[in-house]
Structures are given as structure tokens and as C-alpha cells.
């Protein structure tokens, strides 16, 4: 059985649950939202095309050699769930002065210091972003699989829809970053952020026994993604890259808002987005 089948079964079960309101009305609304989602893709494609054009025009031999060294090494490390993926052995840690700490201001500073700026930095950030998105995709898939296997108790239909919808959006984000990376002539990043996966996700997931526990884990990932995107906005040098980050960061924060609601927490806890917990270029990808 494929993960897709699992999702379909879960959705079928959800659809069979007695519902007190007009499901049809909400389904129509969802269809409209899907149309709106599709309408945003051309904007993303334009931004990516702009970036891609610059990358091609500015890719000098020295940078190409450096990026090839960073992107070209294969690895066997795997996803939390996504076995069989082709994994790049990308190691972002290039700066010996970096200490790997995760915080707001320092995250930006570390990112700048570690990367050196310009095209190389932009591509490292794109790789980190793709890996974080892959981590989120894998974690939601693990949650969906656990729910399907009955390991999380009763899973409300709305939570199933939330997980599958958010997972798809993270796939879209990863695809956007990989379009940029492959446009620069590098292999797509299909691995996860192993620093996050091994240090945070795996230990936390082992403790998850219900929907609330999974929601807490998901919230930590969404917060980290939103914080990371916010922290790199001043660092990305390409205007198209900044636009790409700017169109994704608010969506991660929207995911976090709904997760806060699910957990009974105020959904908009801060008047200003924070960079606490932002990931840095010292994270390993595999």
C-alpha cells in the first residue's frame, strides 16, 4: 500500500463520518480555494524563472566547481519515512567559526558568515529550504501513516484534511526550491535536514501517541520553517529569491496559526514574526 492509498482511505473514512453541517458547501469552498492556489503558481514560476536566468548568467567556473563539490556527493542517509529517495550528500556547514546555535539575530549573522554572500549563498539557502520542506513532508507522512495504523487514537476528519493539505503545500515549496537549484545545474535536494530530523523530529515522534502530540511536533517544524525564512530574507541577494521566500514564509505561519488553534492556544500569539529557532547553514542535509 502506498502512502497515497493511505491518504485516500483516511479521506474516505473522514467523508463517511456524520457531519452536522453542509459538507457540500465547504467542499465547494475548498474547490474554490484550490483554484486560487493554482492561480498563485504562475507568479512563483515567474520569480523562479527570473532567478534561474540570473544564476545561469552569473555561474562562473569557480562557483560551479564549489557548488558541484557541495551538491554532487551521493549519500545513503534516508528520510524519516521516505525510503528510496535519491539523496544528495549536501553538507552546508562550510564555516568553521559557526557554532550551530539556533536563534534569530545570530541565525542571520551565522548564515551570512557561513556562506560568504552572493550566488553561492543563495543556492545554499535554497538547499536548506528544500531540505526543511522535505523534512516537513516526511514528518506529515509519518503522522498520516501512524493515524492510518490507528496509533494516534481517534483522528478527526478535519485533522486528516489539514495534514494532507499542508503536506501538499510543503511539497509545492520543495518543488519551487528544487526548480531553482536544478535551474542552476545542480541536482535536486531530495534529502531532509538531518540536523533537525535526527535531533528533533525522530526523538519527538517516538513519543507521539495522539493527535495533540503530533500537532505539537508539527508546530515546532512550522515555527522553525517560518523563522528560517524570515531570517534569510536579508541574506538572499537575488530579488527573485527574496520574492520566493516572501511568498512562502506567510504560508508556514498560517499553518502554525491553525495548529495553535488545534492545540487550544491563541492562533496569532505575536504581533511580529520571530526568528527564534531559525535553522542555519550549518545544518546537515542527507
Amino acid at each position: 500500500m502506498t502512502p497515497h492509498d493511505d491518504t485516500q482511505q483516511a479521506q474516505t473514512r473522514a467523508a463517511q463520518e456524520p457531519i452536522a453541517i453542509s459538507e457540500r458547501e465547504l467542499t465547494v469552498m475548498t474547490a474554490h480555494l484550490e483554484e486560487a492556489h493554482q492561480a498563485t503558481l504562475p507568479v512563483m514560476h515567474d520569480a523562479i524563472a527570473d532567478w534561474d536566468e540570473r544564476l545561469r548568467s552569473e555561474n562562473d567556473p569557480a562557483e560551479l566547481a564549489e557548488m558541484r563539490a557541495r551538491f554532487g556527493r551521493p549519500s545513503r542517509r534516508g528520510f524519516l519515512i521516505g525510503a528510496g529517495a535519491t539523496l544528495g550528500g549536501l553538507v552546508l556547514a562550510a564555516c568553521s567559526s559557526s557554532d550551530g546555535k539556533k536563534s534569530s539575530g545570530p541565525a542571520t549573522t551565522n548564515t551570512k558568515a557561513a556562506a560568504g554572500g552572493g550566488l553561492a549563498t543563495d543556492l545554499k539557502i535554497a538547499a536548506l529550504a528544500a531540505a526543511l520542506e522535505n523534512t516537513a513532508v516526511a514528518t506529515y507522512q509519518a503522522g498520516i501513516n501512524a493515524a492510518t495504523a490507528g496509533k494516534l487514537g481517534t483522528v478527526p476528519p478535519a485533522i486528516v484534511t489539514f495534514a494532507t493539505t499542508v503536506q501538499q503545500q510543503h511539497k509545492d515549496h520543495a518543488a519551487a526550491w528544487n526548480a531553482i537549484i536544478t535551474g542552476a545545474g545542480k541536482p535536486a535536494v531530495t534529502g531532509v535536514d538531518t540536523t533537525v530530523n535526527d535531533g528533533v523530529v525522530q526523538p519527538a515522534f517516538a513519543q507521539v501517541t495522539d493527535v495533540a502530540g503530533l500537532a505539537k511536533l508539527a508546530l515546532s517544524l512550522e515555527d522553525a520553517a517560518g523563522a528560517t525564512y524570515l531570517s534569510v530574507i536579508p541574506v538572499v541577494s537575488d530579488p527573485g529569491g527574496v520574492k520566493t521566500v516572501a511568498t512562502i514564509q506567510p504560508v508556514e505561519m498560517q499553518h502554525a496559526a491553525i495548529l495553535n488553534f488545534v492545540l487550544g492556544q491563541y492562533p496569532v500569539p505575536n504581533a511580529f514574526a520571530k526568528t527564534d529557532g531559525a535553522r542555519t547553514l550549518t545544518d546537515k542535509i542527507g
Binding site: A15, T30, A39, T40, P156, I248
Partner: peptide
């Protein structure tokens, strides 16, 4: 009661994968 929410309610809060302008 989260179980009382319709399935479609789980996705209405974030309609786009990329924020529009």
C-alpha cells in the same frame, strides 16, 4: 470537539501554497 468539524474545515485557513500579491 474537533471531531465535530467537517473534513473540509481542515484546509480553509491556508488556501494557497504561495502567498499571492
Amino acid at each position: 470537539n474537533l471531531s465535530a468539524l467537517p473534513a473540509a474545515a481542515g484546509g480553509v485557513g491556508f488556501p494557497n501554497a504561495f502567498y499571492k500579491t
